[in-house]
């Protein structure tokens, strides 16, 4: 048992496009300590989403080792990785990935359903989470009845459903106004303070500065890890 939540050793992800090889990740080694708050920045196409997917056990690297809680996930079976995703990892997708036929509440309930949480408990927690992301009045709306920012917040609430130890958020504030953005960032700070490990992809420096450090990706390579000395604190309106 290490105190790293996630450990990446020389991780590569390559795609063969005809005679051209695309290196989405090109030898990334990174340790994400437990309870840390890390931001990931980089130009479009630099491999940020790919990194998140690999860390979240959604994608398997072409080469290298990914350890989550000290376990090499590349050796796990599909079912074991699914179980790990189910109770350890909360994922906020860049493209939200909500279930189109289900209401906001049902979408948030879904990860709990798969974990076998009882109906009333599920519902209470879903309502509570949606309230925390400011959607108490949109419980019964389906994704296509919600704005982009509202969908993003449903996706965030869903990621938190099983109280995961590791929260991976791909552009979680990309569609939000500054006020809602501040609320989400405050929520992240609370979660981080409660001991959750956070990994957040963002294009915005101000969002990234809420983290303890910023990982800069460029062309699939880890360019720099920048330590933030003056962290912004959402709760105190430092922006």
């Amino acid at each position: 048992m290490t105190d790293a939540a996630v450990d990446l050793h020389d991780v590569r992800k390559t795609y063969q496009m005809g005679d051209q090889t695309v290196h989405a990740l090109d030898g990334v080694s990174l340790t994400i300590p437990q309870g840390s708050y890390t931001a990931v920045m980089g130009p479009s196409g630099s491999g940020k989403s790919t990194l998140m997917n690999v860390v979240g056990c959604l994608d398997t690297p072409t080469e290298g080792v990914v350890e989550v809680d000290g376990v090499d996930v590349t050796t796990l079976s599909d079912a074991e990785r699914t179980a790990l995703r189910g109770d350890e990892i909360g994922f906020v997708f860049q493209t939200f990935n909500l279930m189109p036929q289900q209401t906001a509440r049902e979408n948030v309930e879904l990860p709990m359903t798969f974990q076998g949480v009882g109906r009333t408990e599920r519902r209470e927690r879903a309502d509570d989470l949606l309230e925390r992301v400011g959607l108490a009045d949109r419980l019964d709306h389906k994704p296509n009845e919600l704005s982009g920012g509202q969908r993003q917040r449903v996706a965030i609430a869903r990621a938190l459903a099983n109280d995961p130890a590791i929260i991976l958020a791909d552009e979680p504030t990309g569609n939000l106004d500054s006020e809602t953005e501040a609320e989400i960032l405050e929520l992240f700070e609370e979660l981080n303070a409660a001991g959750n490990t956070l990994l957040v992809v963002t294009h915005e420096r101000v969002v990234a500065e809420h983290a303890e450090r910023i990982v800069h990706l460029f062309d699939g390579e880890l360019e720099d890890i920048e330590r933030i000395d003056q962290r912004r604190i959402a709760g105190e309106g430092t922006r």
């Binding site: 599909d78 079912a79 995703r85 189910g86 990935n97 990860p111 798969f114 974990q115």
Partner: peptide
């Protein structure tokens, strides 16, 4: 795609 979503959030096969 929906199956992918369900799997991503912890649905077993």
């Amino acid at each position: 795609r929906e199956i992918g979503i369900m799997k991503a959030i912890g649905a077993t096969r």
